[in-house]
């Protein structure tokens, strides 16, 4: 993102607001069982907080919060968490993605609840990393990018 001038108000306010957006994104992911939310929405909020800092401070300073090279590995890690949850159920005797067989807890419905949480974490990680990576890739090679 091209910056023409240093505006201290924008820098300060965006730096103050970004951690709260990130915290709210984590809340949306982890409280998705009981309120509107889930991995997709929370991942988008996390990506919004990262991109807000890149927009306001410039991409160079934004790198120190979330380096560019982390994008693709984190996205792959998120998808691997999803596949791994499914494979764990398969190895432990159930069908693929049947969370009732993963011993998170004693009761079958609670096991399913924990399985859903694990899957949502994977989805949130992948969505956040991919959105930030697409933003970085589109700005690749631009001046002050």
């Amino acid at each position: 993102m091209r910056r023409n001038e240093n505006n201290p108000i924008i820098d300060l306010i965006s730096s103050l607001v970004a951690p709260f957006i990130m915290l709210f994104g984590l809340y949306v992911i982890f409280h998705g069982h009981y309120s509107p939310g889930g991995g997709f929405q929370g991942g988008t909020l996390l990506a919004a907080s990262v991109i807000l800092l890149r927009l306001s401070l410039g991409s160079e300073l934004g790198q120190s919060q979330f380096p560019r090279r982390l994008g693709t590995p984190l996205a792959s890690l998120g998808v691997l968490i999803y596949y791994g949850t499914g494979l764990a159920a398969l190895i432990l005797g159930g069908a693929f993605l049947n969370y009732g067989f993963i011993p998170f807890s004693a009761l079958a419905p609670l096991r399913r609840s924990w399985g859903i949480l694990s899957v949502e974490i994977g989805v949130g990680l992948a969505v956040m990393a991919v959105l930030v990576a697409i933003y970085d890739d589109l700005l690749e090679g631009e001046p002050d990018a």
Binding site: G32, H33, Y34, S35, P36, G37, G38, L107, P109, L110, R112, S113, I116, E120
Partner: peptide, 8 residues
């Protein structure tokens, strides 16, 4: 599934 949010 022990989940209140049906969409999730």
């Amino acid at each position: 599934a022990h989940t209140d949010n049906m969409v999730t």
